[in-house]
Structure formats: structure tokens, C-alpha cells
Nucleic acid binder design. Sequence first.
DNA 1: CTGAAAGCGCTTACAG
DNA 2: CTGAAAGCGCTTACAG
Lengths: 359, 359
Amino acid sequence: MARGKDGQRGAGRITLTQVAQLAGVSRSAASFALNGRTDLRISEETSERVRRAAEELGYSPNATAKTLRTGKSGTVALVSDFVGTTSVANAMVRGALQTLRDADTLLYTVDTQGDPELESRFLQNLRSRDIDGFLYASMFTRTVAVPALVRGAPFVLLNCVSEGSDATAVVPDEFAAGETAAAALLSAGHRGDIWFVGDFPSGFTGGVEWHGWRPLALSERLEGIEATLAAAGTSLAGRVPIDNDWDIANGRDGVARLLGSGVTPSALICVNDAVAVGAYHALQHAGLRVPDDISVIAFDGSPLTAAVVPTLTSVALPHQELGRLAAQLLVDEVATTAVHRVPMSLSRGASVAAPATTR
Amino acid sequence: MARGKDGQRGAGRITLTQVAQLAGVSRSAASFALNGRTDLRISEETSERVRRAAEELGYSPNATAKTLRTGKSGTVALVSDFVGTTSVANAMVRGALQTLRDADTLLYTVDTQGDPELESRFLQNLRSRDIDGFLYASMFTRTVAVPALVRGAPFVLLNCVSEGSDATAVVPDEFAAGETAAAALLSAGHRGDIWFVGDFPSGFTGGVEWHGWRPLALSERLEGIEATLAAAGTSLAGRVPIDNDWDIANGRDGVARLLGSGVTPSALICVNDAVAVGAYHALQHAGLRVPDDISVIAFDGSPLTAAVVPTLTSVALPHQELGRLAAQLLVDEVATTAVHRVPMSLSRGASVAAPATTR
DNA sequence: CTGAAAGCGCTTACAG
DNA sequence: CTGAAAGCGCTTACAG
């Protein structure tokens, strides 16, 4: 993992000496001014000049040097065994950890909570420690703007792609996942009356910003579904828009609305497992049985699939493999701008059967 | 966050110079030998002497100095927005992050996967970076042996307690949680035929090692339950032992066995949500309705509670508050050996009702 | 192999 | 305020 194009030391990294020079003061004075120390009784005017110089040069202190000198790093570590959990995030971390372990590299995880200001502080800190590389990851598959600080070191996007498609990225193959879901229904004998549950609320389309984010899964899954249905001479009977969160309540409400409108689907393809669980609830409430009356298939392959009766058939996200591959690409310094798509496999439950009409 | 008793610089930290002295070689030679470089054509015998000296002194290189000199840190960072997920682990991280943010401290997370060798490598690396403090956390509440490397800096145990109770720790109040669960059933009118699902398999007791770990939740929850029932003049009708994993299948099998033995409980207290979901399945299979025929209550307050019909009543783990408090104690340098117990609150679903016999 | 030295970028006590 | 200096712990080119 050598330094990236923009990651060379010295190439651009501003030091305190340079700030002092520009401000026309001693290094000591610059240090005192920047750290807001008053021992030296530096005039406010001088302090201001130093701060402006630092600002102008884009100075950011080297945390490694500071730590070496002071014996304090300003950081705390949380050490845990969390990865054991079956969580989306943890599976990605687990995959990356395995690969990096073989490469004798440790993995620090930081969580920005999706907050740009916190992210920026973390990135500054990490860069100032001469981190060898970044895995820039997203909770759910979407398009991101890669921060300049990340671009300054080798990096691989994990579960997201860059705006200009100008970076190495690893994402699930959502199109193929859509194909897989549709094919599962087709091979069970379904042809018509297949509904998709989880479209954007009206006014939104898959291609635009949504919730401040730009998810990829929805549009690509839909394309895969439609392509496969079209090849079999059919198409979706319709799409049920639901609210933002793609949670259980959204799924229940959406399907209740669908059933209330007099439609009797043969099968439901739900945008994720939680929505499918909500669909179960609405179906049960309407006295419909899964899969006897209606088949249900979803995406994600989360623990929810085992919580319902009958168990839910779902096209599983390959989180661990995403982490593994992204780490491998980082270690291997593969410097393409390719988007690597990892296959999603069908996790078979008992929620898909032959359509009621054929029995 | 000052350095802990054993954390002072210089006090004990061995440097390369000391290794070289003990081995009777130059610092250059020591460096070359330890890094396995051959440029200098150091004899195998000398190398061996250096390695022995390093070993004897317990030398571990200072990563900060090394990074400063070489511009490489040997680490990679995974930057993400994972914390948004509703996962046990992430809630703890989120809580800690919030507190530390106010204290202007960043949080690095490392995951050891429960592997002692990987943990040791991480701890070495973190200590060598002069990390200001540790949150030592466990996935589930248990007794841990705190590594010496952690003790070398200020630290707080998160969701675990130390073997000798000689460290500041933050854990859920499991005893009170047991009381809460029992009280919920009592106030719904249940008196007898209350069964506990999730006892250790026979041969194990709550006090001893289990699965290589020593969980606290089970024994303390049971004590709280029994204490509250006793105060109401009753007691558990029995305990259903289940297999190790405390997952959905374990719960289903355990309850199926119980029902198969001819018992008809009035209420079930399940050791966690997953086991309760399994209980639902077994009850449904037996034609019993929740809560009309049997009430069910559990512990954890996970997303599974919303996935089932009726929604599950559960005593919720206060993960975020655990993280928040632990971070606060770390920042405040509270140097007691106190175990702080955080209350668990009742998350009301629709799975508890009056006993069938009273209606 | 040795030994003295430079240098990574910072903070800080010191004499002026 | 300045300015020269030391020092954190390492790596590494250099002359012997």
C-alpha cells in the first residue's frame, strides 16, 4: 500500500515552520498562537496574523509529531468483540478485517454518524496520522461525493460509488439481484399479478436525490426484475409506493393500501426484508396466507427472514464479501476506477410457492 | 484524561536505545536487526542477541515515532456512517461518540473478533500511539479479564465487569430488569404457571464459565424475577433449558418441548427477544394465541420485537446510555472501581395480557 | 559491523 | 515577543 498520487509526504503537507515564515514570526510564537496559549503574552494582532497564515496555507498540524512530543494523542479507542453480531455493518468490517490481517495491517474504524462536520474532523485526524489507506463505506448502497481528504491517500469505496465514477468501488450486484428475485418467482410458476412493494413516494424517481441520499439499490433492482420478467413475456403488474424509511410499518401500510384497493396479487417483491415483514402482517390481517395465497420475496437476507413464519425468501446482501474484496483491492493497490459488483445469492425460505390459481 | 498510574511516559516504556545498550550494539544495528534488514550484513548471532534483549526488556516499538520518521503508519481506516444502524454494538458506539464529541476527543473503534491474538496486536498498536484511554467493551454482558495493556492507560469497562471487580465498569441493571419483567406479568394478573425460557443446558449454572464466557445477564435476571415473584407470594413454575445460542431455533425447540410435556403455561419469560420469537413460533404451531392464551415477555428490546404479531413486550437494553456513561466516566477520570448499573426500561408491545383463566 | 549524525514535525523551557 | 535549542523515539545514509 504505497502512497497515492496526492499522498506523498512533503509534496504538499504544510508545516508549522511554513506558517511561521508566512506570518513573519518565530516557530515558538506560531505554536503558542495556534494553541491559544497565553504564557508568552502574544498580542492579539500577532495571533490573528498567524491564524490567517495557517488558514491561507491550509495548515493542519501533524498529529504524529504532536503525539510524539506531548505523549497525548487526543484519541480514545473502543476495543470490542462487536463484529460477532449479525449486523450489516459488522459483516463488512469482518470481511475487511480478515483480508487485512493477512496483509499484516490493522483496521481502525471510525463512525461519522453521517455528520459532515464530524467526518471532516475524523478525516483530518486520520490523515495527520499518515494512515496508509481508506475504506470509505456507506451503510446502504448509494452514490457519494468522496471527500478530498480521502482522495489524498489510497482508497476504495465500500458499498458506494463516486459521483463521477472516478474511483475504485465495490458494491453488491443489485441488477443481478433483481434478476434473481424475478427468476425465483417465474420458476415457481408466477407470470402475472407480480407486484413490487417499495417504490419511491410519488414525486421521486430512483435516479434523483432522495432523503438527501442517492440510493442505487432500488432502481437497479427494479431494472433487473423488469428485464427478467420481460424476457419471460410479462412485466410487473404494478409498484406500490411506500414511505421513506423502508421499515415494517411502511410495508404494512403499503400492502394494506394495495389490498384495500381490490387488487389480489399473485406475488410480492419487497424492496427489503423489513418491508416484507410488514407485508406479512398486512396479509395476515387480511386473512391471506404466505405462500399458499400469495408468495413473498425480498432483498437483504437479514436476521428478520428467520423471525417470521414462514421464513422469508430473500436475495442476500454479500456484506462480508464486499468488505473482503474492498480490503483486497486496497492492499493490492489496484488503481483502476472500476466498479466491482459482488453477486447476491438467494437465501431460500418458505415464502415462495406456486401461484394459488394454478393449484 | 490524564495518564493512569501505569501510563506515564518514561516510567516503564522501553526504547530502542535501551535494547541496544543491553545487547551491546549500536542503535543502528539494533534497529536493523529488529526490522530484519540485511543491508548492514549483521551476523545472525548479533541479531539473535538483539532480539533476546528486546524480549527481555519487553520492548515494543513506538509507532508514533516510527510513523513520524517513515511516513507510514501500518494502519488503515474504515470510515463509515454505520452507527445509524439499529444494532447493539452501534448503539453503544453512538452513545460514546456523543459524549466524547463534547470533550473534543475522537473515538477509534477496533474489533478483535474475540480473538486474543488479534486483540493483543491491536492493543500493542494502540498503546504505542499513546492512546489517551480505553473503553473495553463486550458484545454481551459478562465477566472479562482486563488485558494488562488496557490497564496501562485510563480505561472503563463497557458492558462487562472485571474478574476482581477492581475496575470502573458500566453494565445494564439486569437484576432490576428481572424485577421489571416479573412485575409486568404480576400487574397483568399472572400468579402461577409462569415459566422461564432460556436456562442453561443441564450441567451448567449461571455462575460458572459457559461457552468460554461468563455471562451475567441470565443469573441476575433470574434473581430479579424470583425476588419479585417471591415478594408476591409466588415463584417460577419452572425453567426451560435451551441450547447455547439463544436464537430463534433454540426458543422454538425449547417451548415445543415444554408444550409437548403437557404443561400449559400462563406466561413465558424469555431470556432474550430471539428466543421469544422462537416461542411465538412454537405457540402458533400448537394453536395457542399470544397474548390471549399465553403472555410472553422478553429481554433486549431489539428490532425483532416489532417484527412479530403481536409486537413483543421486552425489557430493553440501554446500549446507547451505556456508551454515553462509560465515555463520561473515562473523560472525567473517575478512578473508582465502582460498577455502574444503568436501568433497563420496559418496551411495551402487545404480548402481555391477563391470564386466560381469569377471563 | 560501529558511531555520530540528520531529520520526521512538533512543544516548550530558556536567555535575551 | 525572538531565536536558538532540546527532545519525543525512531530510521537511515554515511564515513570509518
